[in-house]
Each structure stands twice: as structure tokens, then as C-alpha cells.
């Protein structure tokens, strides 16, 4: 399958418009010039779009694709309305399936499986919630452990645990050779 077909399959949730928009890129560089991540990292949005357009699979193993913060600035500004950020997210789905996933993103996934939250609650958040007149514990998996069970079941059924390399014995990430 071509890279674009892979993206279409793994990124179906973003819709066909997102995939079709890839072809509309005119390589103007508005995205790269606007990218806050690109100010401090080697992440280059336009180059990524170019590689996707030309079906260059080497992009899947490029660690830079994980440096997008999904701030959507490029998406907002793109003069051809390429759905850049969503393309990147769909591309990450393909990369993850092929075993390329940044450690930081795997850790985030680990927290989701372990706690139901990408960012579990901490003392500072509890304090802030209290100050705002909210219950200390939010009505999420933190309050309803049975909901966490459901999330963990979904993770197993969707093989999300395998995808990110979650070890149910240690409740932590498996040691994995970073590709």
C-alpha cells in the first residue's frame, strides 16, 4: 500500500477531506514559518507535507514527526486549507503501527491505560479545583474506578496496549528498542 493509502486507513477518523487536502499543498512554507515547535526544534512542517505528497516512507521513522505540539497554527494559516495538523496526527498513526513511536507519546499512552488520563490529577490540580469551587476529584476515572476498567478493556480489545508496549504486570512500559 502507498503511504497515502496507509494514512487514509489509519487516519480514517479525520475524514477523507483531510487526506485529499494533502494534494493541495503548494509548498509555500507558511506552515514551517509559523511553527512554534520549529523555532526550537528541527521539525519542518512543509518538508513533511512534501514527503507525504511524494509517498516517501522514510518520514515514518523520522523522530521529528513527534515534535508537532498540535497547536494548529499552521492549520489555521494554511492558504490552501491543507489540514496539516490532522495529516500529521494521521501519519503518526501509521508510524506507530510500524513500530515508530516517540518515548514521550508512549508514556502518555501508558498513563491513559494506567489511570484513564493522559495527565493524571496531581496535588496542584486538586488545589486549583478546590479554589474554583469544584470537587477535589473530577467525575472521571479518578472518581469511578469501574470506568477505568472499561478503558483498560477497550485498550486490550483495540490492542492499544500492544501498540504502545504496555506491560500489565509492571503496569509500565515494556523495555523496547527505540527504532
Amino acid at each position: 500500500m502507498s503511504l497515502i493509502e496507509d494514512i487514509e486507513e489509519s487516519g480514517w477518523v479525520f475524514g477523507k477531506d483531510t487526506i485529499d487536502s494533502i494534494y493541495a499543498c503548494m509548498q509555500c512554507g507558511k506552515c514551517t514559518g509559523s511553527c512554534p515547535s520549529g523555532r526550537i526544534t528541527g521539525y519542518r512542517t512543509r518538508r513533511l507535507m512534501n514527503k507525504v505528497q511524494s509517498g516517501d516512507r522514510s518520514i515514518l521513522e523520522d523522530p521529528d514527526i513527534w515534535l508537532c505540539t498540535t497547536c494548529y497554527t499552521c492549520y489555521e494559516r494554511c492558504p490552501r486549507e491543507v489540514k496539516t495538523t490532522d495529516v500529521i496526527r494521521a501519519l503518526r498513526n501509521v508510524a506507530a503501527k510500524e513500530g515508530y513511536m516517540s518515548k514521550a507519546h508512549r508514556a502518555t499512552a501508558m498513563y491513559v491505560i494506567k489511570t484513564g488520563h493522559a495527565v493524571p490529577i496531581n496535588d496542584a490540580t486538586k488545589k486549583l479545583r478546590k479554589k474554583l469551587g469544584l470537587s477535589e476529584i473530577p467525575p472521571t476515572t479518578h472518581k469511578y474506578p469501574e470506568a477505568l476498567k472499561a478503558i483498560q478493556n477497550i485498550s486490550k480489545k483495540m490492542k492499544f496496549d500492544k501498540l504502545v508496549g504496555f506491560d500489565w504486570n509492571t503496569m509500565n512500559l515494556e523495555e523496547r528498542e527505540e527504532k
Binding site: 512554507g29 514551517t32 514559518g33 509559523s34 512543509r46 518538508r47
Partner: peptide, 11 residues
């Protein structure tokens, strides 16, 4: 003015 030089692939 911030932009990318698309021929150098560098902002």
C-alpha cells in the same frame, strides 16, 4: 518577518 526559505528548508 519570519518565513521559511523553502529552498533551504529552513525558517
Amino acid at each position: 518577518l519570519r518565513a521559511e526559505d523553502t529552498l533551504l528548508s529552513e525558517p
